[in-house]
């Protein structure tokens, strides 16, 4: 009955599956963005999308309104999402500094220019 899964999502009341679907879309967009963007800043944005897709999952799994008491992750879910937000900020700060350093040396943020090291 798997071909009817999307139809089910549209007719059912909102549950974990809906959040997971949005999270999965964010994840796929992020991965595509990482793989296809040639601009280093675009790649970093893709990474943010992936992290937020995972965050949405954590929130949905942790919610007692979506899964009922004692079923899901409980407080662990939102807490993990909070930690991930903090980490994503730290990672973005470091990555932007590295991109700026790259720009100072190459006058460009095109990752295809990073081709001196290969072999």
């Amino acid at each position: 009955m798997h071909h009817f899964m999307l139809a089910n999502l549209l007719t059912e009341p909102v549950g974990v599956a809906h959040y997971m679907a949005v999270g999965a879309v964010l994840f796929v967009c992020g991965v595509l963005c990482m793989a296809l963007k040639r601009n280093a800043l675009g790649v970093l944005m893709g990474i943010e999308l992936v992290l937020n897709g995972a965050n949405l999952n954590f929130i949905a799994f942790g919610s007692r309104f979506l899964r009922g008491e004692g079923q899901g992750l409980g407080l662990d879910g939102p807490l993990m999402a909070l930690f991930v937000i903090v980490l994503a900020a730290a990672e973005a700060a470091v990555a932007l500094a590295i991109v700026l350093n790259f720009y100072n040396n190459y006058d460009s943020v095109d990752i295809d220019r990073a081709d001196q090291l290969q072999g």
Binding site: M34, V43, V50, V94, I98, N101, F102, Y106, A114, L117
Partner: peptide
């Protein structure tokens, strides 16, 4: 060195 850092950061974060 800046290229190495960029590659490492992008792969690592991804």
């Amino acid at each position: 060195s800046s290229e190495a850092a960029l590659k490492y950061a992008v792969y690592g974060a991804g």
